[in-house]
Nucleic acid binder design. Structure first.
Lengths: 126, 126
DNA sequence: GGAACCTTGACACGATCGTGATAAGGTTGG
DNA sequence: CCAACCTTATCACGATCGTGTCAAGGTTCC
């Protein structure tokens, strides 16, 4: 028997039970439920909780930031619009030497093409 | 003469001068400055301000969300970590029919490989 | 040189974020 | 059956977000 209750999961991961529910409400980690509605934390969830903690600590990001990243990945229209906005010329950086302009543009495009947007793999809309 | 002052830019874009400074502090739009430090809004900045407004209105996102998206694109280490976390098995979705499992996995990988992370062009870790 | 701009900095204020605590009620297990 | 868990919902509270306003000082321009 290897599923933990919310209190047990809290203690082994360093989160509080309250925060586990909050993390779930943000859509970041949603443990399965028992027949009577109890949250059941397995190895996968525990690992995910620990790495989430690490992610937040390492870089200075909040839960809502991670939640937004998740949203970017799920909502195509959103990520498309965001990508396009960021992609748009922000007023050309004056520090790019004239000769390197083309390369700069190319690199920017390479970076941005794959940034944030989902489904970059062509797909035949069928 | 086609550069606008902050008040003029505010009136033609619908933002307040206060917000233009805020948007700038978030790193979203940084207009060039005159010799004496006055902000100079040109056509590029005005367009960008209008589309930014549209982006916020269309989807329900905040300025800080867009700022985070920008950060994701600039900080490689961050976007890599975020991508890896999101990519990790969130506890297998039970609603994927057994037969389709492989395809599901493939698709997920395709989607995620290019999501959020910059420089998806392969690179030999060396 | 003075009116009308601009600058940065600060105080303020409602709304949301990240958290805790507590209440009211259902579940589990000895 | 009762103690010890679980559930959702609510109040609370400091911190940040989004925004306005105001102060103190520099710039522009007639």
């Amino acid at each position: 028997m290897n599923v933990l209750t919310i209190h047990e999961a809290a203690q082994t991961t360093g989160w509080s039970p309250r925060m586990l529910r909050y993390v779930e409400r943000l859509g970041l980690i949603e443990p399965p439920r028992s027949a009577s509605g109890y949250r059941q934390y397995g190895a996968a969830e525990l690992q995910r909780l620990r790495t989430l903690r690490e992610l937040l600590d390492r870089h200075d990001v909040g839960l809502s930031d991670v939640a937004f990243a998740l949203r970017l990945q799920r909502e195509e229209a959103l990520s498309g619009d965001v990508r396009r906005w960021i992609d748009a010329e922000p007023s050309r950086p004056a520090d790019v030497p004239a000769g390197d302009w083309l390369r700069w543009e190319q690199q920017k495009h390479e970076r941005l093409l794959a940034a944030i947007t989902p489904r970059p793999t062509m797909e035949t809309t069928r």
